[in-house]
Design a protein around this nucleic acid. Structure first.
Lengths: 346, 346
DNA sequence: ATGAAAGCGCTAACAG
DNA sequence: CTGTTAGCGCTTTCAT
């Protein structure tokens, strides 16, 4: 009766070396490609690796090579964040990291600066990406002192010399207002934040609203920004009188998020207005989500994937030793796509 | 001019030992508490740790102690998954792991079985949690052969001897149908899946629908399950005739997800029906989300947090060496909460 | 109650 | 082109 060992211990590079009849360091060099190996030796080693299904031990690698092949991603996951906004970032970051054979450890903003100190202090990771960066964010000073590459996603008041990537909310706002202006609208109303979000807490909120206001003024549209005082649909519903105050005129409604677009569609329908005929709804939204609405919503793309890719690219440049001046990298919105919810007035 | 060193090297337990005037192994024992230390020595060591802000090197620990303090969480993040359904699980798992000083590496289902082999082979983690477990899931056989603790979230056809945790979709369905039966309804209609989801791909889908059908039959309600043939709201809208076929009678609509509940509310409103008076809408949904709807929706709680906590608890029992028989652990829905959308008929 | 010392599995400098 | 060797920082015997 073949008794299976309780816990088979994993093969090491030494086992591979023995099987291939070479020294252990040769195995290491075959894997890293850091010195030239005769074709014949390489093949024997590769065969042994295959046969034993050898994989290098991550702990030993990290210890000796002082590189963990892990990046830490700090993100807000609780009730205060909309998962639909954050998951595309996470997904893309994990994907881009894996392409470089890096793994991603997920930590939450709840851990605050101490979480960063822990990960760096224990040498659990080689670099950080911080999401949900607020205008004043206590994590930034800690992160900047860490002596490890850090990329912020968002625009803080003070980058503290770190790289940052953000969506160009100003360009997005201008594209949306321009769409309304170009199609003969006379009034633009932007649906503001619905939760208890403090204005100015996040750069992109105030930047988006300010840019809407300024562009509307420049293009000669009357403008209003409506911030519901209750969260969720109930708040939007209650704000209907102000949102639709100018429903008799050539009114365009602006949504900063897919959720806002959905609420605005629902609102207009409920009040007997046909989006694309009596009123326009335009917003920031992925192209896929925009096309999936009924009716499809005129949008500029939110570019979560481009922002994330840029963040990972920057991070790996730093890991590769790049010493260029850190900066803020704004990702332009995609082209505006006119869909069914743009009403074209003479 | 004090030149700052380019890269300050992290303090080691050896540095702590020197500063405290003890041997390096004593530092280790102070940290692990695995042998008794005189109060005086402990204090000196602790002070040195404090002073140097020493943190143990994770790689060295993993190498020597053969335990990484990392669990790998494999989850579906792409377009096919609704982030609102998955993030509460992720959040709770990260939180529960951190309580035990474990970190969580996030990998995606896209990596498939090879992702599991990689993490286990390189000894990147001590254990696995697999989410989005389908009825037949190619990851399971691989996971079961891994010789590391694994907990599944979901109910596969074959657990292959692994632990699994799932929401009791049958109990949830029964509670919802009972609510309709108890309040005098004569017809129950459940909104089915809207994407291209293959029926039977996931246990909880078919289990929920089957349980609705069976309970409706047992309680004497006419029953229908409507599966829109287009995704999103458009599909629901198109299915309106069938969903509302019995609007003249005592009709109750059942939603398996918050998204479905939102669509059903929208649908009824659009067709001039008042939820809670002309028609009922009941569904599976977190209490918070249910209360936030307008009007608040009668619900049984989805218990994402309880499921996740149970999964992590099980995992750590296994990591602690528990040899009890692995099983499927069903988490009961919370009490049904009757809110504004239950219409009470005579 | 403490110290000394052996190695975990790997990388990279040094020696041919 | 390849082998030998010295650690990385820690946990854990073995010794006192």
């Amino acid at each position: 009766m073949s008794e299976r060992r309780a816990r088979r211990t994993a093969p090491t590079s030494h086992d591979v070396a023995r099987l291939a009849g070479v020294s252990q360091s040769t195995v290491s060099y075959v894997m890293s490609g850091k010195r030239s190996i005769s074709a014949e030796t390489r093949e024997r080693v590769m065969a042994a690796i295959e046969q034993l299904t050898y994989q290098p031990n991550a702990g030993a690698r990290a210890l000796r090579g002082r590189t963990t092949h892990v990046i830490a991603l700090m993100v807000r996951l609780g009730e205060r964040a909309d998962p639909r906004d954050t998951v595309p970032y996470i997904d893309t970051i994990v994907e881009a990291a894996r392409e470089r054979d890096y793994d991603v450890v997920l930590i939450t903003t709840d851990e605050g600066p101490d979480g960063l100190k822990r990960m760096a202090g224990r040498q659990n990771c080689d670099a950080f990406i911080l999401m949900d960066v607020a205008a004043r964010d206590e994590r930034i000073a800690t992160a900047a002192a860490l002596d490890l590459p850090v990329v912020l996603i968002g625009t803080p008041a003070d980058r503290a010399g770190l790289d940052a990537v953000d969506y160009d909310a100003v360009a997005a706002a201008e594209a949306l207002v321009d769409e309304l202006a170009d199609t003969g609208h006379t009034h633009a109303v932007v649906l503001g934040e619905t939760g208890g979000v403090v204005p100015g807490e996040y750069w992109f909120l105030s930047a988006f609203h300010d840019a809407c206001r300024d562009r509307a003024a420049a293009r000669g549209l009357a403008f209003d920004a409506v911030h519901p005082d209750r969260p969720g649909w109930a708040g939007v519903d209650a704000a209907a009188p102000r949102l639709l105050a100018h429903r008799g005129e050539r009114l365009g409604l602006i949504a900063r998020t897919p959720q806002a677009a959905e609420w605005l569609l629902q609102l207009t329908r409920l009040h007997g207005l046909r989006p694309g005929a009596d009123v326009s709804v335009v917003g920031v939204c992925s192209d896929a989500a925009a096309a999936a609405f009924d009716p499809p919503v005129t949008n500029v793309s939110a570019q979560a994937r481009d922002v994330s890719r840029k963040a990972v690219d920057l991070l790996f440049e730093r890991l590769g030793g790049s010493e260029t001046e850190p900066g803020l990298h704004l990702i332009a919105p995609g082209e505006l796509h006119r869909r069914a919810t743009t009403a074209v007035f003479s």
